[in-house]
């Protein structure tokens, strides 16, 4: 199915639904770290495979990042959630979790996985509730540590040409923590997603 550009009404609805799901995830993160999370406006796009790096617009091309991805599927909707951390964030995260030792790559990995579990799980739950669907989540997979963004964008994410992307750049108030939650929905999911959202628009 070739999808034309998102119409404005649909984009607006996706953005609002993402906004609510993002708020739930941010609430859990704020409670864990005891730090206010500044909520951005989610960016919704319909992207070609070659434009994936554009979806990561809030990060700099040559920043060193670490990333986790987790697949989800259910109710004829499928996609991947990526959580991308700027590596400069770990010092602050460690402080906020009262971790006092040396921040080794292993510790970074644990922090990354903990936060990915919270943010991805809560976002998907918030999304599923609003759309009245249910998702099963796959195992989280480490895409790598200390990568640059181009490595990440050029990675193999399976065979797709076009995807709906929702990008949420979370920031912790008063801290140097940058992390991007990126949701990719496969093109096969778009018709179902659109149907669910149109139903809410009626």
């Amino acid at each position: 199915m070739i999808v034309s550009d998102l119409d404005e009404e649909l984009r607006d609805a996706y953005q609002e639904i993402a906004n609510i799901a993002m708020g739930r995830a941010a609430d859990l993160l704020a409670r864990l770290l005891d730090n206010y999370v500044v909520l951005p406006i989610p960016k919704v796009n319909l992207l070609e495979r070659s434009e994936l790096n554009m979806a990561l617009g809030s990060l700099e091309e040559f920043d060193s990042v670490s990333a986790v991805c987790q697949g989800f599927v259910g109710s004829r909707i499928a996609g991947e959630a990526l959580l991308i951390f700027n590596d400069t964030s770990f010092q602050d995260i460690a402080e906020l979790t009262n971790f006092a030792g040396e921040i080794t790559p292993q510790i970074e990995l644990e922090l990354l996985m903990d936060i990915a579990n919270i943010l991805i799980g809560a976002f998907l739950k918030g999304l599923a509730e609003q759309l009245d669907v249910s998702f099963s989540q796959g195992q989280p997979v480490i895409l790598g540590q200390h990568l640059n963004l181009l490595d990440l964008a050029n990675r193999d994410y399976g065979n797709w040409k076009q995807a709906l992307t929702i990008e949420i750049p979370y920031r912790l108030e008063g801290r140097g923590v940058d992390c991007d939650l990126l949701l990719l929905f496969t093109e096969d999911s778009l018709e179902v997603l659109e149907g669910k959202v149109r139903y809410l628009l009626e």
């Binding site: 799901a21 708020g23 941010a26 609430d27 704020a30 206010y36 909520l39």
Partner: peptide, 9 residues
């Protein structure tokens, strides 16, 4: 009326 449900908000 908001999606920002943090106690702080």
């Amino acid at each position: 009326i908001s999606g920002d449900i943090q106690p702080e908000a």
